[in-house]
């Protein structure tokens, strides 16, 4: 099995355990051993104290140094770090690009990090989706068939923006669609698949987020989808956990199940929904909506 450095990010260890469990299961089934960095720090996304720009980059760069150290110690097959949370992906990848491209920033960061080992700039930061982007639909042996399940793919912004950090064509991505199809479901998307969900505005401008989520989810429902998938714990919260608030603000809103994309793959590969979620709303509702007889074990 190929050993690959894995950076989970803070949210996957607390609020988004579902995401991690299903992803690890998926990766293992597809031939990857994910080696979690033994010590890692915040990807750098939420640093409340950082008013200057460089300290913002210390944390992501230190995580990359630890990948470098692990490769040197032969704990990894290659200098690659894979992450799941799209916010972590975005922060790590952008710091990496900036470090590689700017000699001035490179030397400043090295100076601040002082006695810590210096980053050589050779680590590639990958999103989980990129690992499997070249898999042909039909080449993966599935335990369960999802034929007839219509899934609305939701990218949000951090997987695609800024352009140089995008994991696919920033304007016309297909990577999530391919992933969905690889596991036997039907992918649907609209321009709302790439509309921002409101992100951290959920803390101080919830009404704005409710409005955005309403637009996105309504687009999904109108496209005929049975469920929505996402790659980000924050998008997950904004699209799923505040649906009752959307109902209150927009009485016509009907609601739709939301899940991590890895829930779909784990289910198709044979993981029992009860193993990752006590109440696996996504699968249950999705099954009810598509009609259970359509899904065959």
């Amino acid at each position: 099995m190929k050993k690959i450095g894995y950076y989970p990010g803070c949210t996957l260890k607390t609020k988004a355990k579902i995401f991690e469990k299903t992803a690890l299961y998926t990766a293992e089934k597809l031939g990857y051993e994910f080696i979690e960095l033994p010590n890692w720090n915040c990807c750098g996304a939420v640093f409340s104290l950082s008013s200057d720009d460089l300290i913002h980059h210390l944390a992501p760069i230190r995580n990359l140094v630890r990948v470098q150290d692990m490769k040197e110690g032969a704990f990894l097959s290659e200098e690659t770090l894979v992450t799941l949370c799209s916010m972590c992906f975005n922060t790590l990848k952008r710091a990496n690009i900036r470090y590689k491209n700017s000699a001035e920033d490179r030397s400043k960061i090295k100076n601040i990090m002082d006695t810590e080992s210096a980053y050589q700039g050779n680590v590639s930061v990958l999103h989980f989706l990129e690992l499997f982007k070249s898999i042909e639909p039909g080449s993966v042996k599935l335990k369960r068939k999802l034929k007839g399940l219509k899934v609305f793919v939701y990218y949000g912004c951090t997987l695609l923006r800024p352009k140089e950090a995008s994991l696919d064509d920033a304007e016309a991505p297909v990577i999530l669609e391919r992933y969905v199809e690889t596991f036997g479901a039907e992918a649907l998307s609209t321009p709302f698949s790439r509309l921002c969900c409101g992100s951290y505005q959920t803390v101080n401008a919830r009404e704005k987020v409710v409005e955005l989520a309403y637009k996105i989810l309504t687009s999904a429902i109108e496209s005929g989808a049975d469920a929505v998938i996402t790659a980000c714990p924050l998008c997950f919260f904004n699209l799923k956990d505040i649906q009752n608030e959307i109902c209150a603000a927009y009485p016509d809103f009907k609601g739709i199940p939301v899940a991590y994309f890895t829930e779909l793959s784990a289910y198709a590969l044979g993981m029992d929904p009860g193993e990752w979620d006590e109440e696996p709303g996504f699968i249950k509702t999705a099954l009810a909506q598509t009609g259970e007889k359509k899904i065959k074990r």
């Binding site: 915040c42 750098g44 939420v46 640093f47 409340s48 104290l49 300290i55 210390l58 944390a59 810590e116």
Partner: peptide
């Protein structure tokens, strides 16, 4: 602890 910016000064 949410104010930690991972500067690593404590470790040093």
């Amino acid at each position: 602890i949410a104010r930690c910016v991972s500067c690593n000064t404590c470790t040093k």
